[in-house]
């Protein structure tokens, strides 16, 4: 049994847990940055920028993440290679699209064709992070946009009356105050993000669900030392426990923050808090 659980394949699944956690840890701040940029753009007085921000939020939010993942990574990859191609090989005379093939000069390949496997994997991981960040950034932008609007107008007017510039109003008054309003939405978003990780295999990253399926599928004695029937049930049970535990931990952490924020508010929640205190 101990031998079975330490095969190279099992090592891969343990490793992939780390991959998923790392992806979440990187994606969350990047998506927040995208969201912040999107929301700020949507609020902009400069019309094209505002339209860009609104368009980004509306389109990406409207499309199921699965549909997005299925073609977007390849598109993103080709887009990067095309840009590098334009920069690095200006005198290339062949078309980029030869029939169905997408061909760029060797120097523009990302990553370089002869680089090690781990570089390819890191690049794939980076693309996955970027795709996740773009998708969830749109949702974050929506939340932050709402939060910015929720900051009482009087606060901004007061700031203006004190002679603060537009920029100062935004950074010193609006941004510090909006987090209170954004937190419920953002914490919900975090929960959704956790549960979107099983879709990673669509992005070419071998995540825990991929390995659980691979390990759980029935094995005939010819190809493995550990033949077994259909064990996917047990592996998925393990995944279920992992996700539930992860959600629970996040919930406890977010609850603490939320408790601090509802304190003293004249709502049913605040009332209940006061009664127990």
């Amino acid at each position: 049994m101990a031998c079975y659980l330490t095969t190279g394949k099992h090592m891969a699944i343990y490793w992939s847990v780390g991959t998923v956690l790392l992806l979440l840890a990187i994606t969350a701040p990047v998506a927040l940055a995208f969201g912040f940029a999107g929301a700020a753009a949507a609020r902009s007085r400069f019309l094209p920028l505002s339209l860009l921000g609104r368009g980004y939020v509306a389109i990406v939010r409207g499309v199921p993440d699965i549909a997005f993942f299925l073609f977007f990574v390849i598109a993103l990859d080709q887009f990067f290679e095309w840009i590098r191609h334009e920069v690095k090989c200006p005198d290339w005379d062949q078309p980029i699209r030869q029939g169905n093939d997408f061909v760029v000069c060797a120097a523009a390949k990302l990553p370089q064709g002869n680089s090690a496997q781990w570089i390819h994997e890191t690049y794939g991981f980076f693309l996955a992070v970027l795709t996740f960040a773009i998708v969830f950034g749109a949702f974050a932008a929506n939340v932050l946009y709402g939060a910015m609007r929720a900051v009482p107008r009087a606060q901004l007017e007061t700031a203006e009356a004190y002679g603060m510039s537009q920029r100062q109003c935004f950074w010193r008054i609006l941004v510090p105050q909006m987090w209170v309003f954004a937190l419920p939405g953002l914490s919900n978003l975090w929960m959704v993000l956790i549960k979107a990780t099983p879709l990673l295999f669509l992005l070419g990253v071998e995540d825990i669900v991929y390995w659980a399926r691979e390990l759980g599928g029935s094995k005939t004695p010819r190809f493995t030392d550990y033949p077994h029937g259909d064990w996917r049930m047990w592996y998925f049970l393990g995944l279920l426990v992992f996700y539930l535990a992860f959600t629970r931990v996040s919930e406890v952490a977010l609850d603490r923050i939320m408790k601090r924020l509802t304190k003293g508010q004249a709502t049913t929640g605040g009332e209940a808090q006061r009664k127990t205190a």
Binding site: M191, K195, A196, T197, P198, L199, V209, R232, F236, L239, L240, Y243, L244, T247, R248
Partner: peptide, 15 residues
Amino acid sequence: IFVFRGSPLFIQFFF
């Protein structure tokens, strides 16, 4: 609420 919100839909379909 906890079980259905805490697990991916993917896994719920499977089970």
